[in-house]
Write a protein that binds this DNA or RNA. Sequence first.
DNA 1: TTGACACGCAAGTAAATGCTTGCCTATTGG
DNA 2: CCAATAGGCAAGCATTTACTTGCGTGTCAA
Lengths: 112, 112
Amino acid sequence: MTPDATDHMDLVFKALADPSRRLLLDRLFAAEGQTLGALADGLAMTRQAVSQHLALLEAANLVATVKRGREKLHYLNAVPIHEAHARWIAKFERPRLDALAALKQHLEGDPE
Amino acid sequence: MTPDATDHMDLVFKALADPSRRLLLDRLFAAEGQTLGALADGLAMTRQAVSQHLALLEAANLVATVKRGREKLHYLNAVPIHEAHARWIAKFERPRLDALAALKQHLEGDPE
DNA sequence: TTGACACGCAAGTAAATGCTTGCCTATTGG
DNA sequence: CCAATAGGCAAGCATTTACTTGCGTGTCAA
């Protein structure tokens, strides 16, 4: 068990935890290869704020970049999301609420 | 499009962003119906810290609880995780890195 | 070449977060 | 009944986070 795996997963979850960053991922999903300026355009945030968000996404390896002249192009990388799903989310997907609801009713319905 | 949906999704992602909380979910996965004390046992954290984490998980609807006397039993609810996957993660699961790698090589290898 | 453009760097700040300590209430078993 | 047990409440604190402003650097186009 590599400790790095946990660390990186933490970066991914933290990166996904912010609505602004999820918005940026959505924007990149709509059109990849956008520049920082294009991504920041129309948002209620400065270019620098967007840049910092993108830096976090890049640290989590959710976004990869290519420099082209004075521009920086941004691309999605879905691999970490896939990993998060595979090793973390998938195991919780079995429905368990039914059993809980039954138990809850049993306990609360129980006179005492 | 309900605005609540986004808000709740934010709670879910934020709840999942913390390693301690993911550990608690893992512990609950291993054995449901545990009390606060049982969940806090052996952790390098006070009972109150654990209680606060569980409150967040409960707010995100990832954990449901039942009071039994002076004890509080905790149960997993996988539904929000399933929703997060369905409406957010699934759409990114198509592999896109290959196209990026090709482009990157093309750009960087291109003699200027 | 020179100004405009795209971006990076860094310090500062307000608010959120994770955690603690201290105390209070409710339930239970002897 | 009453001490031990399980948990809740709330204030305080250190760190992190999200954002800003200000300025510097590389690139391009006229």
